[in-house]
């Protein structure tokens, strides 16, 4: 049985704001319960303002007012050293950062200081957690970069001298040099061109396998999840609506939103009309009653409008929050055909 490295329970995190007397509460993360296991890539999908970025902020222990954790716990287990992000002190969190928990960001420039050579940035981030300095540190970094097929020369370069793909490789190097057990990758390939994107995804996948780390991979692009994630969780309006093994999510989705996301992806060689989902994502300040997806859901019935569907387990590793999950079918023929094959 694989071990869990991250356990999130009943997590609620809201933005509570007060601007010149106008009070607003945005329920960005509303009752999420999930686990991430050692040595897996857990994909999180969701559209903009679905709360996925806020959820990641909690996981990364980057909780700043007006964003607050209202309820629940976020427990990491780093080699028998448990820590709960929601109650840990600043010093405790500082101690796990980069050594156990690291990030790969969307824009490499937010990590790489433009006026410092890459080598200096590595020292800033990794020297202390690794407890190395001078030549030993440099050797360690060079060996690590070699694994990412980067020459040691990049350490002498400034960020602007590297291409976008190279920079993203460097940030991956930076995030993995301390061999952290948990890596949060937030849209790491969104800004990259298709050819480079594929290479970078490959790289993340390889290094994850080699180190046996757990990765939370956040992107809105379902085709990236298809190729990288072991399990995928879908966030909609602050809630986890479905979670399951990647293959099942694509070929036998059990939530109408997932089914739609999968079906809306166009493919070369297939000209059939792609369905479009009407309506807009709900406002997190004022979400709809009952199931939050019901105003846009083709299967919605009266019950969906009144009662919130619980996230129930419907198969091995597969959970969904839909009253009518048994009626959800893949929407396009390719996935339908492959799905039958997969189930058979």
């Amino acid at each position: 049985m694989t071990q869990d490295i991250l356990k999130v329970e009943d997590l609620k995190a809201y933005y509570q704001m007060n601007y010149f007397g106008i009070e607003r509460e945005v329920r960005a993360v509303d009752d999420i319960t999930m686990t991430v296991r050692k040595n897996e890539v857990y994909g999180i999908a969701g559209e903009s303002s679905s709360g996925k970025t806020s959820f990641i902020k909690v996981l990364a222990a980057a909780i700043r007012p007006p964003f607050r954790v209202i309820n629940g716990s976020v427990k990491y287990d780093f080699n028998g050293k448990p820590i709960d992000i929601t109650t840990a002190s600043e010093a405790e969190i500082e101690a796990i950062r980069w050594k156990h928990l690291s990030y790969i960001m969307q824009g490499s420039m937010s990590v790489l200081n433009p006026v410092r050579r890459i080598g200096r940035t590595f020292e800033d981030f990794a020297a202390r957690p690794l407890g190395l300095s001078g030549r030993a540190f440099r050797e360690r970094v060079v060996t690590h970069l070699a694994k990412l097929k980067l020459s040691p020369n990049v350490l002498n370069a400034y960020p602007h001298e590297l291409s976008g793909g190279m920079r993203q490789r460097v940030t991956i190097g930076l995030a993995t040099v301390c061999h952290p057990e948990f890596i949060i990758a937030d849209e790491p390939t969104t800004a990259l061109d298709v050819v480079v994107q594929k290479e970078v995804l490959q790289l993340i996948r390889d290094i994850q396998k080699e180190m046996g780390a757990a990765v939370i991979f956040v992107t809105h692009d379902m085709s990236v999840h298809a190729n990288v994630a072991d399990r995928v969780g879908i966030i909609y309006a602050g809630r986890l609506v479905e979670e399951g093994p990647t293959r099942e999510m694509f070929f036998a989705p059990k939530h109408p939103y997932t089914a739609h996301l999968v079906a809306s992806l166009p493919r070369i060689g297939d000209t059939s009309q792609r369905p479009a989902l009407e309506g807009r994502p709900p406002s997190l300040a004022d979400p709809p009653q009952g199931c939050r997806f019901h105003p846009r859901c083709p299967l919605a019935v009266d019950k969906c409008r009144r009662e919130v569907p619980p996230l129930e387990t419907i198969g091995k590793d597969h959970r969904t929050a839909c009253w009518r999950w048994q009626d959800v079918k893949p929407l396009d023929h390719v996935h339908r055909a492959n799905g039958q094959e997969a189930i058979a």
Binding site: Y19, F20, I22
Partner: peptide, 13 residues
Amino acid sequence: EYIDPRSRLRRMG
């Protein structure tokens, strides 16, 4: 602070 576009936008919601 009040007329700053960012703060104005936040007040607008």
